[in-house]
């Protein structure tokens, strides 16, 4: 790894989230370096999704701090965080199914688009120009994932299969040109082969975008092994181990946490 890549893009210190009496995250110190793919693993209910939710502003922290690119974002709202260059997918798909693929992806580019009344209702020529530009970008992104998906740009999202919905969700996150992308169980609801395919596509896109920083939550260990540079293991909201996947997987504490669960 180069020297520059050791500077953290995201930094959590003592990050704690409580739901009533439940400690979902317990004083987490996690660093995500520029340009790395960090795997976040751990048994069910260990707080992985909660971590993504709190850094993307869906939940607020009970204690501790989060910094993104040196800026304190602990109390920032979800709305502001997207302006800070954060984008994500969700464990349970959160596409707007009655809307077209295009509308869903445009949401990811929202902060770049002109939402003013005058522009949208009166200056229809410049609105159309903006629409064309976003459609071209969306098509290009979809094409990398699946060439036939690019032709379905104006189909309703509900008409797509699970794997294509996942692809669209990832495109929605990527079109905003984020600094940091959070992927919550991209394999959820897909077969093994489909998962492999999507992983290849994510790696391909990452290459073409030039070192995107990603936090990926996954229970599919083969996927984690293939895509991550480093892993953090959570158990009961605590970090129990961190390092390269091979080392982490061999760690007795980690083995016990997974065994203890089943």
């Amino acid at each position: 790894m180069t020297e520059a890549s050791t500077i953290s893009l995201l930094e959590s210190r003592g990050l704690t989230v409580r739901f009533g009496g439940l400690l979902a995250l317990n004083e987490l110190d996690i660093d995500v370096r520029h340009g790395e793919v960090l795997g976040l693993i751990g048994p069910n209910g260990s707080g992985k999704t909660t971590f993504l939710n709190v850094i993307s502003g869906v939940y607020s922290a009970s204690a501790g701090s989060i910094k993104l690119d040196g800026v304190d974002i602990t109390t920032a709202s979800a709305q502001n965080l997207s302006n800070h260059g954060l984008a994500r997918t969700f464990q349970r798909s959160r596409l707007c199914l009655p809307l077209s693929v295009f509308d869903n992806i445009a949401l990811g580019a929202q902060k770049r688009l002109d939402s003013g009344l005058w522009h949208n209702l009166v200056r229809r020529k410049s609105f159309a120009a903006e629409t064309r530009a976003i459609a071209a970008e969306a098509r290009e992104l979809l094409y990398v994932f699946n060439p036939s998906l690019a032709d379905k740009l104006f189909e309703p999202a509900i008409s797509l299969g699970m794997i294509d919905r996942r692809r669209v969700e990832i495109c929605r996150a990527l079109i905003g040109k984020p600094k940091l992308v959070l992927l919550d169980e991209p394999s959820a609801g897909m077969t093994h082969d489909e998962t492999d395919q999507v992983v290849d596509e994510i790696l391909g896109i990452r290459k073409s975008l030039g070192g995107l920083t990603i936090i990926i939550v996954e229970h599919e260990m083969g996927l984690i092994e293939r895509v991550t540079d480093r892993c953090v293991v959570l158990n009961y909201g605590k970090k129990i181990c961190e390092g390269r996947f091979r080392d982490v997987a061999a760690d007795p504490v980690v083995r016990e946490a997974y065994l203890g669960q089943s």
């Binding site: 984008a87 959160r94 809307l99 949401l107």
Partner: peptide
């Protein structure tokens, strides 16, 4: 775009706020 944003607000407030 306004129509798209209004639809997203109706369909999924979490997705709406996460995307700004």
């Amino acid at each position: 775009w306004i129509g798209v944003w209004l639809d997203v607000v109706r369909l999924d407030e979490t997705a709406a706020s996460v995307f700004g």
